[in-house]
Computed example of a mutant assay.
Amino acid sequence: MASLLLFGFPVQFELGGRLYHWHYLLETLAFIVGIRVYYYLRKGVKDPISDENRLWIMLGAMIGALVGSRLIAILETPDQLPNLTFSILYASKTIAGGLLGGLLGVELIKKFIGVRVASGDLYVIPIIVALFIGRIGCFLMGVAEPTYGTETRFWIGMDLGDGIKRHPVALYEMIYLVLLFLLFQGLKHQKMRNGDRFKLLMVLYFLYRFLVEFLKPYQPLFLELSSIHWSAIFIFLYYSKFLIRTCKAAFAKKPISP
């Protein structure tokens, strides 16, 4: 028989006399639901990329995410690099690194197969949904996983398992992801360049990660900034042309005459 343990963090469930974390189950669920949402949204959409090339692109994204999530994660704790082992490397992962690595993996595979059109817009909603489900698992882990915030007297501060009121940054991200979902639902019928929705998602998500990192106990990698900070800065530079073009378009709009 299975039972749910709700009192205190980490939140676990009991099955066959053993305790299990929800996090690993929700990680798998996030991947499965994200894939299903993608295929649901793709129905009836005229995709300029062939099914075969889409599979190659998804493979590039998964391999890139696998490498990037672990590389950025181990750089979050640079003082542990001299003692790095394969088991530590395998267990380390971060969503920001996964998105960054996935982006680079997609760009590399697209160059290899000769695809030059933007391919990310179809993944925007599936990514948001998958991230939200995954963050539920992170939140339920409390301080058992490094997705908690610093000590705070803010009213929403929570005891995540160590007796200290902390910023529940995983909960903050879940709220932010709901807002992103509503934003992109509102943009669904807006005319935008192919690929701009994905670029907007990456910029907005990494803007959040850059800012919320200051609410977490982090180890500086360089210039008092963590590997997550530098990942965000890379994304801002990578999409600088998009940011400049978007800002120009926003400020170029003439006010409506009375």
Rank of each mutant, 00 (worst) to 15 (best):
M1T: 12
A2E: 11
L4C: 08
V11W: 02
E14F: 04
G17C: 05
Y20N: 03
H21Y: 14
H21D: 13
L26N: 07
L26D: 06
I35M: 12
Y40I: 08
K43S: 09
G44S: 07
V45F: 10
V45I: 12
R54H: 07
R54D: 05
L55A: 14
I57Q: 01
L59F: 14
L59D: 07
G64N: 03
V67L: 15
L71V: 15
I74C: 08
L75K: 10
P78L: 08
L81I: 15
A96D: 11
L100F: 12
G101V: 06
L103Q: 02
L103W: 08
L104E: 07
E107Q: 14
I109W: 01
K111E: 11
G114Q: 04
G114E: 02
V115G: 08
A118F: 04
D121Q: 09
Y123D: 01
V124C: 02
I128V: 13
A130I: 05
A130P: 02
F132I: 13
F132P: 01
R135W: 06
V143D: 07
E145D: 15
T147D: 15
G149I: 00
T150K: 15
T152V: 10
T152I: 10
G157A: 09
I164F: 07
P168F: 02
E173N: 13
M174K: 03
Y176S: 03
Y176A: 11
L182I: 15
L183I: 14
K191Q: 15
K191Y: 09
N194Y: 09
L201V: 10
L201S: 08
Y205R: 06
Y205G: 03
F206W: 02
L207P: 00
R209V: 04
F210T: 04
L215P: 00
P217I: 08
Y218T: 14
Q219P: 00
F222E: 05
I233G: 03
F236H: 01
Y238W: 13
Y238R: 12
Y239T: 01
L243Q: 06
L243G: 01
I244K: 14
P255C: 09
